[in-house]
Simulated scan of single mutants.
Amino acid sequence: METLITILAGVLVTVATYLLLSKSVIRVILGTAILSHAAHLMIMTMGGVKRGEVPLLGGGEQGQYVDALPQALILTSIVIGFAVTALSLVLAYRTYQETGTDNLDELRGNKHE
């Protein structure tokens, strides 16, 4: 299972790299969002896919417990990433309203002939 998730994370990194190298602001923003999701998958994979009980005190029998720290960190990262992506999309939309383009070269002042 970990091998499949690692391959999926690699595919997501490849797609994110392709989007980050484009000249459209929207594609760059989507590329950063996909890259963050690939990082989330890698963190989950490194944490390991384990089966066990919820670590609660006062349980009846001692068994194998699952570490909840990777899931908590990833959930926090997803919420922060969503907020950053939303803010970036709003800024890109406002920039498009002001300039009329979302091409990064034109926003830098480089005109193509």
Rank of each mutant, 00 (worst) to 15 (best):
M1G: 13
M1R: 14
T3F: 08
I5Q: 09
I7E: 09
L8R: 02
G10C: 11
G10M: 07
V11Q: 13
V11R: 12
T14V: 08
T14D: 03
T14S: 10
T17A: 06
Y18F: 06
L19P: 02
L19Q: 10
L20N: 00
L21N: 15
S22T: 12
K23W: 01
K23Y: 04
S24I: 03
V25E: 01
I26Y: 15
R27Y: 09
G31Y: 03
I34Q: 01
A39I: 06
H40A: 11
L41Q: 05
L41S: 06
M42Y: 07
M42Q: 05
I43N: 05
T45V: 11
G47Q: 03
V49R: 15
V49K: 15
V49F: 14
G52Q: 03
E53A: 08
P55G: 14
L57C: 03
G58K: 15
G58S: 15
G60V: 12
G63P: 00
Y65R: 14
A68V: 12
L69V: 09
L69P: 00
Q71T: 12
A72G: 07
A72T: 11
L75V: 06
I78D: 07
V79I: 13
A83E: 05
A86K: 11
T95Q: 08
Q97Y: 03
Q97M: 09
T101L: 04
L107H: 10
L107F: 11
R108T: 09
G109E: 01
H112E: 12
E113S: 12
